[in-house]
Write a protein that binds this DNA or RNA. Sequence first.
DNA 1: CTCAATCTTCAGCTTTCCTTCAGAAATTCA
DNA 2: TGAATTTCTGAAGGAAAGCTGAAGATTGAG
Lengths: 224, 224
Amino acid sequence: MKLLIVEDNLDLLENMTTYLKREGHICETAKDYRQGFDKIMSHSYEVVLIDIMIPHGNGLELLRELKSVRPQTGTIIISAKNSLDDKVNGLELGADDYLTKPFQLPELQARIKAVTRRNQHEGNQTIDVHEISIHTNTREVEINGETVDLTPKEYDLLLYFASNKNFVLSKQTIAEHLWGDYVDHLDNLDFVYQHIKNLRKKLVAAGAKDYIESVYSIGYKFKV
Amino acid sequence: MKLLIVEDNLDLLENMTTYLKREGHICETAKDYRQGFDKIMSHSYEVVLIDIMIPHGNGLELLRELKSVRPQTGTIIISAKNSLDDKVNGLELGADDYLTKPFQLPELQARIKAVTRRNQHEGNQTIDVHEISIHTNTREVEINGETVDLTPKEYDLLLYFASNKNFVLSKQTIAEHLWGDYVDHLDNLDFVYQHIKNLRKKLVAAGAKDYIESVYSIGYKFKV
DNA sequence: CTCAATCTTCAGCTTTCCTTCAGAAATTCA
DNA sequence: TGAATTTCTGAAGGAAAGCTGAAGATTGAG
């Protein structure tokens, strides 16, 4: 699951990301309003966690901006004080949940799950593309009923393609989605080629059509 | 047996958990409505014990939520006052049993057993996976009729696998299920490797196939 | 208290995966 | 056609995850 955490307390931020990454999420971070704003405007996340008290602005304001641009994003407000005002405001502005510091990390994980479950009417956790079935709860992929062995990056890549059928995705976008922040200060995105290649090889070897179309100088399209 | 105790009196909570752990249960705890809510939403327990008077909400409300999400969970209501109203309400809302403070710990243990016995009455109490038979009432495991000696953790692990055949279970999930709260603030899950290794060795030595499949970077799958 | 069984930690090793690099192939455009 | 750019490929090193044995810590029974 792709998350954005807007939080200025760097220790807490560090704790949250390491925990959530171990839970299998992809985490991006922002340390203040400005960074948060840039990220929500340029990327899309499944869930965004926003601390109310952040430098250069107010978390509730950021929440409002987010909801106006991407209303389907799951949102969780984090607040140090258990102020009823903030809670009311947060939920009124469309936050899906509200969490007061200090909190246990598993509690956080539970809320994230709950928020996404609420959004995508739970159940259909399998994505089917003709002969390919992706089981998102177990990260397994089947082709014509046979399971295919994919590495983590290959799986992430396939899932990303399958969730954006017939859209052209730039190499940059793909890299940002799969590697998060890490990619920002990188001039060489060659490794994407490798994973595309490996994924193609494995899918075709397992009997699937090669749905990954290269679009010269633009990127790739998962054409179904 | 995996339990959740929702209780704000910390002394009592401490007493209950130490006693019940010694009786062989895995105990998780919640100190108020909010923590309890998060736990029942994100994990599943065999029995949940709920004090009616808890901070941030009402125990009966929590019971209602629990029953709506996981109706098969065993539930025991704990109340300080022997109020008939609460009792009636609790049982009407689907609680399986009702206990008034103060109570003796062995009594608690007896009720827990009774509740699960009632629930499991219909289901068979032995789980069979090809040559492996798990007798959940006696915690004994047989392979081709021969008893295998498993340590408690090994047994729990095997039972967890056998109850989730063909599902990929992350190391994190496994740890949370077998160790409960304890795992929250741990950065090192190495001990899981040990128990997996020991379980594998014993099962194979006893003549079973190695059903435990490693799934790189994710966890394990009990493939039957 | 002592002993034995079990659980947990630690360090080293193996396996798998990721990233980089250099060069070949393909595409675009003058 | 030929040059520039982009994509593809295989090989190699390093990084990360998994496995194992042994040693320390904990627990429970006698």
